[in-house]
Simulated assay, not measured.
Amino acid sequence: MTSWIATAGRWRFGGSLLGDDEAREDDPLGFMGDGDGLCSLSPLQRLYVFAACLVAGLACMFLSMIVFFKPIKFALLFTFGNLLAIASTAFLIGLSKQLRMMFDPVRLYATVVYIICVILALVCALWFQSKILTLLAIICEICALIWYSLSYIPFARRMVSQLFISCCDTEI
């Protein structure tokens, strides 16, 4: 059985430091690998940054609920929180792998719809300053984010689709 051991801020996998080239090649999960070579943080530091970004994103999303009746502030806080939460995973798996996964054919449409909804929410909030359009864009953004997130869970989209179809089926 393999073991993970923390040593001086670096993680050991099966006896060798993950910072070593051999350990990266032997890492069976490919998790917390090189980080595209752009990030010189250790795996433990990346976990800390991931957690900090995720907590900050969730805090922004929670704070956005406080200003729910001010759609412009709500849209800004909520969208910024979403972007922080999604960007936090780039510290775990690396930016290029994150982008490859986001634009994988399985989740390409969900990613594009989500990005369009984020831009639309910001445009409606900042440029048009329309409360109704901003709320509609935020609702679409939430739905796109849920659909995007479901693409990472095997068969989740299919189950949700079947559940929705069975709930909306009005045959007597």
Score class of each variant (00 low, 15 high):
158 R>W: 06
4 W>P: 03
28 P>T: 07
13 F>K: 01
44 L>A: 05
129 Q>N: 12
134 T>K: 03
43 P>K: 01
15 G>F: 10
142 I>S: 00
170 T>R: 13
82 N>W: 03
73 K>A: 14
28 P>V: 08
169 D>I: 02
19 G>K: 04
160 V>W: 13
102 M>W: 15
172 I>E: 06
39 C>E: 07
16 S>M: 10
49 V>Y: 06
141 E>M: 02
40 S>I: 06
87 A>S: 09
90 A>D: 11
62 F>A: 09
132 I>T: 11
57 G>K: 02
114 Y>E: 14
67 V>A: 14
28 P>D: 08
110 A>L: 05
45 Q>I: 00
138 I>P: 06
153 I>V: 15
23 A>E: 03
75 A>D: 02
18 L>A: 10
101 M>F: 13
37 G>E: 07
120 L>T: 07
118 V>A: 05
110 A>Q: 10
49 V>Q: 08
126 L>E: 13
100 R>T: 14
106 V>G: 13
125 A>C: 05
64 S>D: 12
21 D>L: 00
156 A>P: 00
132 I>L: 09
3 S>Q: 15
98 Q>P: 03
110 A>C: 11
19 G>E: 04
40 S>K: 12
101 M>A: 11
3 S>T: 15
131 K>E: 13
168 C>E: 13
12 R>G: 06
44 L>R: 04
27 D>N: 08
147 W>S: 12
7 T>F: 07
53 C>W: 14
24 R>L: 01
55 V>W: 12
162 Q>S: 08
47 L>Q: 02
105 P>F: 14
142 I>W: 04
132 I>G: 07
121 A>H: 09
14 G>W: 00
110 A>N: 12
108 L>I: 15
111 T>Y: 00
18 L>W: 06
142 I>F: 02
107 R>K: 08
57 G>S: 09
22 E>F: 07
14 G>H: 00
45 Q>S: 08
18 L>K: 06
15 G>M: 07
104 D>T: 04
70 K>Q: 00
167 C>H: 08
14 G>V: 04
159 M>I: 13
101 M>R: 08
56 A>H: 03
7 T>Q: 10
87 A>L: 04
72 I>G: 04
108 L>V: 14
74 F>P: 01
15 G>H: 09
35 G>F: 11
72 I>F: 00
11 W>I: 09
153 I>Q: 07
48 Y>M: 13
122 L>G: 01
52 A>P: 07
35 G>A: 11
109 Y>E: 02
26 D>T: 09
5 I>G: 10
163 L>T: 09
143 C>N: 09
151 S>K: 03
18 L>F: 13
21 D>H: 02
112 V>C: 06
149 S>R: 01
137 A>L: 08
13 F>D: 04
95 L>D: 10
64 S>G: 15
67 V>F: 09
119 I>H: 03
3 S>A: 14
59 A>C: 14
170 T>H: 15
64 S>Y: 10
141 E>N: 12
39 C>I: 12
